[in-house]
């Protein structure tokens, strides 16, 4: 158990690290997208254009913070904070290295699922409180999308839980000493990744804010730092989901000994974030009904098959 000063270092490191990471990711994503789409991307401010992250922050803070007169003021202001709080709380259970975690709960996996499901309210209430038809439609879509994909997200992890025999993320990483779960639980990995993208409503699954049909979806009426919080929340979601995939399926901090464990964790998470950006550059957005029927008709049976096969194997060979 880490001592009391150490734990504060980790807590503040997690908070500032994740928010700073999210701010830099805004620039990094555009730069990578530019790279993959054969153009330069933002490269003018500072070395490699990294100053753009700070320029963006200054711009967001100095913009007019406007609450529409027809909006439901109390809910309108509350909504963007929900996604930030939920996502940052989710980081509490992520183990960065042996002994390097805020808390090792025996329900860590469920805690993570609970926090991602609470993040839905941000989008929902933002859409509802705006009193705008586009925002409402965006909120409705996200509610249906997230409630559906949460089901597969939870179920796809149960195979890992069976194999490692614990909900604790530290135990799950330790159970991958011999072989990563991405090999033994490939279906689970596939479903969890797709559900994770849908859960953080990133392209190609950003139907709640599809700009070609809904203006900007649930955050149509938002401006200034309130809009910024939605964006930062979304990027926090990307980082959180990436670090969870790295922890659960790619062995977390495990790696060759010549570099410290936290480096391996960071590298795996970083590559997964890049993968998220690549998906955004490569895959077109599906139609809304395609998204829903894909979820319920393909993802759910796949997860159930994975669950049953894993259960049978565990019972047969008695892990």
């Amino acid at each position: 158990m880490p001592d009391s000063v150490f734990i504060y270092v980790i807590i503040f490191g997690t908070l500032f690290g994740s928010i700073g990471g999210a701010a830099v990711l805004v620039w990094f994503e555009r730069r990578l997208l530019g790279f993959w789409q054969d153009r330069l991307g933002p490269n003018r401010v500072g070395p490699f254009g990294i100053g753009l992250a700070f320029a963006d922050i200054i711009k967001l803070f100095t913009k007019e913070d406007w609450v529409p007169p027809f909006a439901d003021k109390f809910v309108f202001i509350f909504a963007p904070t929900a996604i930030m709080m939920a996502m940052l709380l989710g980081f509490a259970v992520v183990p960065y290295g042996p002994g390097l975690y805020v808390v090792d709960l025996n329900i860590a996996l469920l805690f993570f699922l609970g926090m991602t499901s609470l993040a839905v309210y941000s989008v929902l209430l933002g859409g509802l409180a705006s009193r705008n038809k586009f925002a409402l439609l965006g909120g409705l879509r996200s509610a249906a999308q997230m409630v559906s994909y949460e089901v597969f997200m939870g179920l796809s992890l149960m195979g890992v839980v069976m194999l490692s025999g614990s909900f604790s993320l530290v135990d799950i990483v330790n159970a991958q000493q011999d072989v990563w779960f991405v090999f033994s639980q490939f279906l689970g990995f596939l479903v969890f990744t797709i559900a994770g993208i849908a859960e953080s409503h990133r392209l190609p699954f950003d139907l709640p804010e599809a700009e070609h049909e809904l203006v900007a979806g649930f955050h149509t009426e938002y401006s200034g730092m309130k809009f910024g919080m939605f964006m930062v929340g979304e990027y926090l979601g990307v980082i959180l989901i990436s670090s969870m995939i790295a922890t659960i399926f790619f062995g977390g901090w495990l790696g060759p000994d010549f570099l410290p464990p936290i480096f391996w964790f960071g590298l795996k998470s970083f590559l997964l974030v890049c993968f998220f950006v690549l998906l955004r550059a490569a895959i077109p957005r599906p139609r809304y009904d395609q998204l829903m029927s894909f979820g319920w008709k393909i993802m759910l049976p796949l997860t159930l098959v994975n669950l049953m096969v894993t259960g049978a194997v565990v019972l047969w060979w008695g892990y």
């Binding site: 805690f111 609970g114 499901s117 409402l136």
Partner: peptide, 27 residues
Amino acid sequence: PFAAVLEIVIYAGAIMVLFVFVVMILN
């Protein structure tokens, strides 16, 4: 702790989302 997380995942995270969903549809 298990009941606590289930309370968040299922009641706060899923059932209440459906309630809000219905409120949104009724508008």
